[in-house]
Design a protein around this nucleic acid. Sequence first.
DNA 1: GCGGCTATTATACGCTTGAACAATTTCTCC
DNA 2: GGAGAAATTGTTCAAGCGTATAATAGCCGC
Lengths: 205, 205
Amino acid sequence: MTRRTFHRAPEGERRHDLIEATLDCIAEYGLEGATVRQIALKAGVTAGLIRHYFQSKEHILQEAYRVVIARLTEKAERVTGDPETRLYDFIVINLTEPVANSRSLSLWASFISRVSVDPALAAIHREGYLNFRDTLEALLADFLAARGADASPERCRQLAIAINGLLDGLWLESCLAGELFGESEIVGIALASIEALLGIRFTRR
Amino acid sequence: MTRRTFHRAPEGERRHDLIEATLDCIAEYGLEGATVRQIALKAGVTAGLIRHYFQSKEHILQEAYRVVIARLTEKAERVTGDPETRLYDFIVINLTEPVANSRSLSLWASFISRVSVDPALAAIHREGYLNFRDTLEALLADFLAARGADASPERCRQLAIAINGLLDGLWLESCLAGELFGESEIVGIALASIEALLGIRFTRR
DNA sequence: GCGGCTATTATACGCTTGAACAATTTCTCC
DNA sequence: GGAGAAATTGTTCAAGCGTATAATAGCCGC
């Protein structure tokens, strides 16, 4: 009996492929569908290999969650330009593809449901979350200052909490029921709402 | 060998207990921890009994999800009084116990993660969600009309989407990281934000 | 207080799971 | 082009899963 032929991949590439396969499984079948065998099947390898790269199934899930968070936040955290452009782009990026789509939500929700149960995932979550809100708070402070508005720490904190909530909620809504809105409808509502919250109109709309 | 003694319960009561046990398991261990045997253990019965009351494990999960949605929405949907009081109470109820706590979030997230994968759960979800937003839209229309503000259908729709998003997002934030805020802080931010979005101050704060 | 209905228990079955490990193949280096 | 390292396969294992079903025991009507 002859074995299947295989390809020896560089460690980084193989780990990446395995994590992608994990995310595919979760998005398609949920966390329960992300079994070691299913992940291996999707990655085109055998189940044993996963344990060669990851100490346990828990570990590959943790790595996968880091990737999910990174994809949800990395683009928005790299906005450039003047304060208004950065804030504006931050809003738009978070509510359009590829951040806002049903696959992102599937992945996010799958992991969130384990954050309250699994301390390792909770730690990964908290780091990503605080990061995001700090970024938003800094963007707000810059924007308010540039417009000569009240940019006191307390006000920035409260606005960051509110706008973070608004963006999270609208992101959720559009991912969960995207076909009920035009994509630009959600973005438009977000921009108008944030203008109202800040008491400042964007100049570039 | 002697069997354990047991109590023959009325159907309604037994079904209720089994669903509660299911929710306990999900909140404690996540969806994956809600196995037939674990649920039975928590309910103080044996695993076989679950299949006597529910056609399959899928069915008990669907019933459990209905209960979760009902608990998240029923109190807010029963607000009474003048338009401002109803809207105000709606906001507060959704952001305080027992709607806003980590157990609620655990349960909600567990099911949400399967909504995108399981059509039966998706149907249950959609019904509850539309219900909630319609309630909010009606509250807004009444409140705006009572204050003599623009209550056109388009404006009400957009405000309902925005405020629904804001409430969802703030609910999420406070459940996920409640200890970072005073409970009243989130409520205060919500009320102030909604005043800004509506362009109207509440009289009763 | 007893007979019958059925809620409940107890056990078993077939399958899938995460994990472990020995065998094998690929690739690098000399 | 051969040897050694290690990436990958294939198989096995015990545990746990949802489900099925026969045996039992609690309870209601008489």
